[in-house]
């Protein structure tokens, strides 16, 4: 017997805004991703004024036309299908993906500098490592520092990152 487990499904959604009849139906969307704009351009989604004082959006899906009213979700799944869902129904099937653009920052770690003519290390400040979905950000907080630039990435070994700084402290010529 072979056992199978369904692959994870990924979906994106946007909330239908409450556009009253005096509004343009394309106003007030919190965001219009490319797939939503294309759906409007291809008439897969069409605004419709149905009699109440707000716009409906007719969504062609699975051979039918579904009405999306304010607060409904327009969902695009990983196969590219566009559908109308209520919030409860998508929450029953999907978990929210944590905001991938949110920055994750490490607790501050000490930054040491070797004392001149000695192997003794002196703490000169702290540094935090931040990561978001596009970049790694190292924030270095060194009191008394007036100017610095990263000289080179010295080495990356076993997860440790060593940078060399060219820096000038206050009073230093």
């Amino acid at each position: 017997m072979t056992q199978w487990i369904k692959k994870p499904e990924y979906a994106e959604s946007v909330v239908v805004p409450n556009n009253e009849f005096g509004d343009h139906p394309m106003h007030n969307w919190a965001e219009v991703p490319d797939w939503l704009q294309k759906a409007f351009d291809d008439r897969v989604i069409s605004p419709r004024f149905g009699g109440e004082d707000y716009w409906y959006y007719d969504v062609k899906s699975h051979g039918r036309t579904y009405p999306a009213s304010p607060d409904d979700l327009i969902v695009r799944d990983s196969h590219g299908h566009i559908d109308v869902r209520k919030k409860y129904s998508i929450e029953a099937e999907y978990d929210v993906v944590e905001d991938s653009t949110a920055e994750v920052t490490s607790p501050p770690v000490p930054v040491y500098l070797p004392r001149a003519w000695s192997s003794e290390l002196v703490q000169i400040g702290t540094a935090k490592l931040g990561v978001d979905n596009t970049q790694v950000i190292i924030t270095v907080d060194i009191p008394n520092l007036v100017d610095a630039r990263v000289g080179a990435v010295k080495r990356i070994l076993n997860g440790d990152l060593a940078l060399s700084f060219i820096m000038h402290e206050k009073g230093e010529v």
Binding site: G51, E52, Y56, R64, Y66, P67, D72, K86, Y88, S89
Partner: peptide
């Protein structure tokens, strides 16, 4: 004045 037809979704 109101909708009288179409697909009615849960809730």
């Amino acid at each position: 004045y109101y909708q009288t037809g179409g697909i009615v979704l849960p809730t």
